[in-house]
Amino acid sequence: MTRLERRNLRNGLLFISPWIAGFLGFELYPLLMSVYYSFTEFNVIQPPVWSGLANYHELFFDDPVFWRALYNTLYFTAFSVPACLAASIGIAVLLNQKIPAMSVFRTIFFLPSIVPLVASSVLWLWVLNPDSGLINMALKQIFGIEGPGWLADANWAKPALVLMSVWGIGGAVVIFLAGLSDVPPALYEVAELDGAGPFRKFWNVTLPMLTPTILFNLVMGLINAFQYFTQVYVMTGGKGTPVDSTMFYALYLYRSSFFYLRMGYASAMAWLLFIVILAATVGVLVSSKRWVYYHGD
């Protein structure tokens, strides 16, 4: 190790030392305990009793709800993450122009992320109502088609929740806006000299310069979508109706841990989910070497 390498290692560790201290102090013990719980039968009150791989075995071979919840969660993630990503990039680009009252527009797109869910869920129930809801009324009056049953329909409940999740892109938009503000105007000037139109400029300048932010929003989108919980809990009461179509992974885990008093089983579920999310994230991170462009490098 050269002197520079040693100095860098020392400095690097020094800078991240707060996180290391916090991780060791607050996070590591709960993390290790939950690994341990996952190999036990633990009802929170009595001490855990070792059960080996029994929880994992039951999850894999003996629990239809688990597979259903996993499928629902993968479905939601597969549709919600790309939809939110595309919508938030589009809106951020629209919001990054010189247009009157832009600060008001920016605020508007962030509003759904601020309004308490207890207040807005009432609106969603109306918007998604099959008979008198806003979406189905619009479908009927504009296109003359009979809308689906949304949350009342086992096939449409998840699309309805995906649709709802797009309203919550305010945070991602803000992050993309911060990313857009870092795109050097000189690059656009060069592109314009080359005769590029707005779409060419977006494709050849904006998008490459946004890749670090896209990576961030993609990874965070994945982590959050796999643990999707609060919205569906408020909207459907958390029982997975109709017929298990909205029984999501985190919902089942929550029910198992604090209501069925199976903290060990829930921990096994949590660590399986952890592995899925980690695999997806590492996959994205490895591929990112090819598509993410850091201006600083």
């Binding site: 129930l125 109502n129 109709p242």
Partner: peptide
Amino acid sequence: DPERIEAFSKGFGE
């Protein structure tokens, strides 16, 4: 239709 019923019981409101 069970979906209609579900829609009905989910109805808008409190």
